[in-house]
Write a protein that binds this DNA or RNA. Structure first.
Lengths: 145, 145
DNA sequence: GTAAAATACTTGACAATGTCAAGTATTTTG
DNA sequence: CAAAATACTTGACATTGTCAAGTATTTTAC
């Protein structure tokens, strides 16, 4: 086994590990009125200016038709409003309703609690270390694009 | 020192980032005869001694019925053999066939290539850093259990 | 030893999630 | 202005996952 092979094995080990971590965190969607994908879509809607299906698809990688239906569903559930952009009438601009924002903020709070719980055993110093390492990984992997 | 809310936001940012990374890597299942879940099941089968549905469920979190069908499908595809354990005839012990092992190893090779590609732009030193940080995160988060 | 409970898995029915391709409305390009 | 491109929608369908009831076997409690 080459050195490189070991390296790859360690990275894959980390991926499996972290997939599980994120998986555990995502379990909470089970207790919420949103699927994981719906949650991600709602996140984008609430954090994107002049949001549209197009913009969502720029950050999520989701089938166009599927997204269209999710958005329709959100409309039915009173979470968002869709209006054609006056600038380019092909686009529907998407804005969360008051209720949509409220639901998103609940979702958000629950995610925060889970993360909070995840790091509950760590000391202040360890938390700082964790963040540094996370940012470091991000920085390194962003080079690969 | 970072405020707690910011801290959580940074962790969640990392989670979103890394979910995307893993998501990209998992795209390769699209070009393979396995779904992501099937791949994970096959991984467990090939890396678990005296493997059984029970043992798989200890590491994967998957519906019992669903797993049962996946395994049946693997049998149909000639990837595994199931035999009742002589020790406890409720259990079916699962062994990969020669072909199963071969397919798994292909899957494995492709995963490796993807990882290899992911780190292609990093210098030796940076790769070492990446691994250290990954191991560090793992160590820190394992404390939380 | 035997009845009841527990375990390991299977099966049927079904719901949720995701994909593909063709279609509509609108804008851009040549 | 016609053709191509863009943004989204819709229908048909496949994949993936869930729930609950069922079978075979073993363990537990008497």
């Amino acid at each position: 086994m080459t050195h490189k092979q070991e390296m790859i094995e360690r990275i894959r080990g980390f991926n499996r590990f972290y997939t599980n971590i994120v998986g555990l965190l995502d379990q909470h969607f089970l207790d919420s009125p949103f699927s994981l994908t719906e949650g991600r879509v709602l996140y984008e809607i609430c954090n994107t200016d002049e949001c549209s299906a197009k913009k969502i698809r720029e950050s999520i990688a989701i089938d166009e038709g599927y997204l269209s239906r999710i958005l329709d569903d959100f409309v039915r559930r009173g979470l968002i409003k869709k209006t054609r952009s006056p600038v380019d009438r092909r686009l529907r601009i998407i804005v969360p309703t008051k209720q949509g924002k409220r639901q998103f903020s609940t979702l958000n709070d629950n995610s925060n609690k889970l993360i909070s719980n995840m790091i509950r055993r760590l000391s202040a110093k360890e938390r700082e270390e964790l963040l540094e390492k996370m940012d470091g990984i991000r920085l390194l992997l962003e080079k690969t694009k």
